[in-house]
Structure formats: structure tokens, C-alpha cells
Design a binder for these strands. Structure first.
Length: 599
RNA sequence: GCCCAUGUAGCUCAGUCGGUAGAGCACAUCCUUGGUAAGGAUGAGGUCACCGGUUCAAUCCCGGUCAUGGGCUCCA
């Protein structure tokens, strides 16, 4: 299997071979598996008794340097399957010479190459590798490289296979480009939500509370409150009703929903207790999702087609026992509050409801200026009906067609991915990337044609029959944790004024302006503006520096000139220079900007 | 969960080739009334993540635990 490569990918793929060559010089017994280029560089998977750590990088890089300096040509040759097997058995594949042990991974890879496909080798110096290529002409064309990290992986990604060490590096045409890349990484780190969250005092983690359980400091809580306000307004206008449900439920709820067999591993261990003397033990779970609770609310009252669609919204708190190694700042946590809602509707109403949800997404994204995302439409795999997906072939087809049509009609760009749907129906995920480059699902919009039936949910139709409603699960603002984590990086901590934990800071130049400052502070507070008056005895320059570091959107300097003329000197990141303006003019513009939630 | 790395003051980090620690910022007190990114002085603050081992002696060496970070679909 050959695949087209960009010039940079050729360089990186070649760098992987240079790495392999260097590894074998140091450890001739190394068993190499796969070594492709990746988005940020390249890696090679290797099986080796020696545990490679970053301390080994210098030594390996020195050997790599020798290989690139030797400027060996990459020579392609084709061989028959038998010849290739013979080379593998003599340990000659991905090696510098014949060895006592066979090239076991390469032989396995060889066995996976379809009959009739060409088998090619690439050779540089003594290193021969089974490889489809392509490569650069000579090892010297790998202009600049650096090993970056080492991790573990399983052969072919399957944990039943042997564990390998994966050595990562990056490579570029030349040193200048590589240095630019590392500088870009440094810049990106400054936007990392974990760093900014600490600096701006938004949230914290504590060992006594537990990993993946964020604690929101007052400034972070402001972000939450503002998002909830936005969601409540939006949902109210869109005909949603707010509901509230407990954080726990009995095991039976999740047996009904069907989550337990799929999801038990991702839930916190259950609480088992005896509710009264001599009674059976009862098991409770912390909820990992809100839908079963909402289904029970739907079921609490007899429902008629006349009241559909019913839209239940709740910022529900869920707990998921994510694997410890999966946790990452706010982006992947164990307690989360979801911008959740469940819409129960008839098949006739479905398309319109689904479209309305999509429009809500787009409206939100416009408010936040989010434009780098990907809509991912996840469908089922017919071969897995009855296992991974509920066995309802017609419903799958029908709902997938409905969703696809909505996407096409709305003119939304999307990618369609088979085999990624929820077990109860197709879904649309909104994919974004953290500043470090890790991909996350920010928001989700899911169809559910299976679970309402499991709960026996029904409404009375106009013909006085009972029907099971369709359900749409949607969370356009995702969870507070991930959404805010994303927003911190998106805005680099410099939030728009409506969202900013501190919206205005007043700086007095001397004590003479303290009274003026207190008056403006009071006026702002009366309009619920989040304001801080800095009347400390620091010099103005120091006060400005502190306010800038806190990323306060509006910094108002109050000196003798301003206080005597009812003016303020405005410093904002939108302005290149400070502007002195009448107080009332600034005040009204500020209130308007907040009310409109402008960026 | 697995592999690798890291863990020293609130923060960012030095340091001790084994003899119980230091800077800058932040904080407190005092002096300074200062006009657009750091005025000065003094002071307080640490069981060197936790538990165990080796040692006359451990923050440092060894083992374990916890936490954090990077990585773990596919990939000739």
C-alpha cells in the first residue's frame, strides 16, 4: 500500500528510517514495527529490553546525525514475497545485518500485505526496511530533526499484542523551520487553559478532592454563571422547559436504560446500602448521563401528541470515572455539568426539531467567534447491528437520512464517519482542537430511537393510539468544564467583556480621586457590572500592569484631569492608545456592549 | 489502565557529588501622592508530594504510593 506524501511527510518518513538506523547501531537486537510520519513529526515503534528515556535522546540523535551527515541514498527495490520472507526470517528486515532472531513484526506486516501487491524495500547504508515509501533522495535531505518524547503503545494498537516503545521526533527541511515550530509550541503553551486557569485564578484541582474534579474559583464561577444565563435565555426562547434531577439513581434505572452493560466501567463504583432492617440491599450510582432521569420526567405525566415536542433542559451534573491517564485539565474530567436537554417529538416533527438544534449551535458559535471546528456525522455499521448498535435497521436508515438531509439543507460542512454512532442512534459531534493539538468533542447532538422504547415512553396520538416518541439529546455548549477550557484557549484568557470575570478596573492616580472612583464603582455595581476599584497607593504604572496581567477588558484611569471633568481615560485591548472620554458616554456604551454580548 | 518524565515557599524556578534550604514575583508592615506595563525598606512564609528502606545522618540514594504532564485509532 503506497500513499501520496507531501514533501514534509517524505522528510519525516525518512527521518523515521534515520531514527531506526541509529537505534540499531546502538541496539542491534531492536525489533522495529512501524515508523510513519504523523502530523507533528514522526515516530518509530520498537521492541527493546532497554527502556528508552529522554536521557537516551542525545546519544540516539548523535547517531542520527552521523547517518544524515553520511548522506546515504535511499534506494528502492522490489522483491518477491518469498524473498522478503527469507530476509525477514534471517532478521535482515529493519536491521543493519542478518540476526539470529527473525524480524518478527516485519514478517507479520508482510503477511498483511494483500496478494498481488508489490513488495518494496528501502535501503540506506546497511539499513534495509520493508517500506512502501516514498522517501527523500538521500539521508542528508532530512535537514533538521529532534527527538521529542517516548511513550508506550501496543503493536497494531491492540492491548493483546506486545507492548512497544514509541519514540517520537519531529523533522523539517531546515533548522530555521524547526526553530519556528518550537517557538510556535512555546507560544501555544502560553494559551494552555491549565496555565491560564491558574494565572487568572479560574479553577483549581486538589488532591484531597480528587483527580479530574475541578474546583471553580470565584472568577471561574462567573464564567459558568454567564454561560448558564446565555443557555437559559436561548432555551427559553426556543421553547424549552427547565427541569432538575438528582445526582444519583438506583441501579434499576440504568438497567432499564441499557447503559449498565455498556457504561459500567466508565461510572464511579456503585454505593450499596440497606435502606431498612431486613430489606434487600439497594445499589445506587452517581449519574454519568442525564437522559434516564429526563425520560422518567417525560413518563411522570400522561402525554398527548398535542403537547409535543416536549423539550426538557437542565445543566445536569454528571460523574464519569475516566481512566486516570485520560484526564487532562478541564478538557477531560470526572465531574462535569452538561448543557443538556432532551427533546421528545413525533417522527413528523423530527426534522424541524433537529434543524432548530443545529441553528442553536451556529448561533452560539457566532457569539463566541468559534470558527475552527468540524461537524462529524456519526452513523452505524450495519455489520454490527445487534452488538454495538441496536438492531433496528429501518430506523437507522430513516433517522440517518433525516439527519443527513438537515445537514445538507442547512448547508453545513460535515464529515460522515461510519461505526461511530451511539448505540441508540446517529449523532453529530462538533470537534475542536485544544491549543496543544488534542482533539475533543465540544458539543453533541444525538438521535435516540431506542431508549424511549426501553423506558416504555409513549404519547397518545390523534387516533387515540400509543406511540413511542423520538428523542434528541443535545448539548450545544457541551459541559462547562470542556467548554470553558476551550474558551480560555480560544480567547487566550482575554474574554469578551460580557464574559470577563472582571469587566472594569478603576485606577486612581492619587488619593484625590478615591471619592470619584467610589462613585463610578457604585454606578457600575448598580448595573451589575463586575468592577474593581484599585485605590491602593501603588504608582499608576504598577496598577496598569496588574490590570493588564489580569486581562481586564476595560481599564479606566482616574486622575485629577478626569475627575474634575467627569471623564475617564480608557485603556482596552481593542484600542491601540488610551482615549479620554466622558464618563456617561463610556458607561452607556459599556452596558450596551455587555447586553449585546459583543465580541 | 499502560510506558516515560516531573513533584523544593501561594507562583516561576535555583540548590544540596548525603550534613534538615535559596532567588524573583506575590503576601504583610512602614516610607513614597506617584499620569499609562514593576518606587523603596523591612518582614513573614518550606515535614524539599506522601510512606517505607539503606545510612551516624536522606530533600538528595533505593523501593512503593499519590498527583501532574506527554503519549497510547489507523499507520510497510
Amino acid at each position: 500500500m503506497s500513499f501520496p506524501m507531501t514533501d514534509l511527510e517524505r522528510i519525516r518518513h525518512s527521518a523515521a528510517h534515520v531514527l531506526a538506523t541509529a537505534l540499531l547501531k546502538i541496539w542491534p537486537e531492536a525489533q522495529l514495527a512501524a515508523g510513519p510520519p504523523v502530523e507533528t513529526g514522526f515516530y518509530y515503534d520498537v521492541d527493546l529490553p532497554h527502556r528508552i528515556s529522554p536521557a537516551d535522546f542525545e546519544r540516539i540523535e548523535a547517531e542520527m546525525k552521523a547517518v544524515t551527515k553520511a548522506n546515504q541514498p535511499f534506494v528502492r527495490s522490489t522483491v518477491s514475497r518469498d524473498e522478503a520472507i527469507k530476509l525477514g526470517q534471517s532478521g535482515r528486515l529493519a536491521a543493519l545485518s542478518e540476526r539470529t532472531e527473525s524480524s518478527k513484526f516485519k514478517l507479520d506486516i508482510l503477511s498483511r500485505i494483500p496478494e498481488g501487491e508489490e513488495i518494496s524495500l528501502y535501503t540506506n547504508g546497511d539499513f534495509v526496511d520493508l517500506c512502501a515509501g516514498p522517501h527523500v533522495m538521500r539521508t542528508g535531505n532530512v535537514g533538521a530533526f529532534k527527538l521529542t518524547h517516548v511513550s508506550s503503545t501496543y503493536y497494531l494498537g491492540d492491548e493483546k499484542n506486545p507492548q512497544l516503545q514509541r519514540i517520537y521526533g519531529t523533522a523539517f527541511k531546515n533548522k530555521t523551520e524547526m526553530e519556528a515550530y518550537f517557538q510556535m509550541l512555546e507560544e501555544a503553551k502560553k494559551r494552555d487553559h491549565r496555565k491560564l486557569g491558574k494565572e487568572l485564578q479560574l479553577f483549581t484541582f486538589d488532591e484531597d478532592v480528587g483527580p479530574g474534579l475541578p474546583l471553580w474559583l470565584p472568577k471561574g464561577a462567573v464564567l459558568i454563571e454567564e454561560l448558564e444565563k446565555l443557555a437559559k435565555e436561548t432555551e427559553l426562547h426556543a421553547g424549552y422547559q427547565r427541569v432538575r434531577t438528582p445526582h444519583i439513581a438506583r441501579e434499576s434505572l440504568y438497567k432499564t436504560s441499557g447503559h449498565l452493560p455498556y457504561y459500567a466501567d466508565s461510572m464511579f463504583p456503585p454505593m450499596c446500602l440497606q435502606e431498612s432492617e431486613g430489606s434487600e440491599k439497594v445499589t445506587y450510582y452517581l449519574k454519568a448521563m442525564n437522559c434516564p432521569h429526563h425520560h422518567k420526567l417525560f413518563d411522570a405525566v400522561p402525554r398527548s401528541y398535542r403537547e409535543l415536542p416536549i423539550r426538557f433542559a437542565e445543566y445536569g451534573t454528571c460523574y464519569r470515572y475516566e481512566q486516570s491517564g485520560e484526564l487532562m485539565g478541564l478538557m477531560r474530567v470526572r465531574s462535569m455539568q452538561m448543557n443538556d436537554a432532551h427533546i421528545y417529538c413525533t417522527p413528523e416533527q423530527f426534522a424541524q426539531e433537529f434543524r432548530a438544534v443545529n441553528e442553536m449551535y451556529l448561533k452560539y458559535f457566532k457569539i463566541f467567534g468559534i470558527d475552527k471546528y468540524q461537524m462529524r456525522f456519526s452513523t452505524h455499521d450495519p455489520s454490527k447491528l445487534g452488538q454495538k448498535f441496536v438492531d433496528e435497521p429501518e430506523l437507522w436508515k430513516k433517522t440517518e437520512d433525516m439527519v443527513r438531509n438537515v445537514l445538507i439543507e442547512s448547508g453545513i460542512n460535515y464529515v460522515e464517519v461510519a461505526n461511530e454512532a451511539a448505540f441508540y442512534g446517529p449523532k453529530i459531534d462538533v470537534q475542536v482542537w485544544s491549543i496543544i493539538g488534542r482533539e475533543f468533542t465540544l458539543a453533541t447532538n444525538q438521535v435516540d430511537f431506542a431508549v424511549p422504547r426501553r423506558f416504555g415512553l409513549a404519547y397518545t396520538t390523534s387516533e387515540n393510539t400509543k406511540e413511542t416518541p423520538l428523542c434528541i439529546h443535545r448539548a450545544p455548549l457541551g459541559t462547562h468544564e470542556r467548554f470553558i477550557g476551550f474558551l480560555i484557549e480560544h480567547f487566550a484568557g482575554a474574554f469578551p467583556v460580557w464574559l470577563a470575570p472582571e469587566q472594569v478596573r478603576l485606577l486612581t492616580v492619587t488619593e484625590g480621586q478615591n471619592e470619584y472612583g467610589r462613585r463610578l464603582e457604585k454606578e457600575l455595581k448598580e448595573k451589575d457590572v463586575r468592577v474593581v476599584l484599585d485605590d491602593s497607593r501603588e504608582k499608576l504604572g504598577a496598577k496598569i500592569r496588574l490590570a493588564e496581567l489580569a486581562k481586564v477588558p476595560y481599564i479606566l484611569t482616574l486622575g485629577e484631569r478626569e475627575s474634575s471633568s467627569e471623564q475617564v481615560s480608557v485603556r482596552s485591548r481593542k484600542l491601540t492608545a488610551t482615549v479620554t472620554r466622558p464618563w456617561s458616554e463610556f458607561f452607556h456604551q459599556l452596558l450596551d456592549e455587555i447586553a449585546r454580548r459583543s465580541l
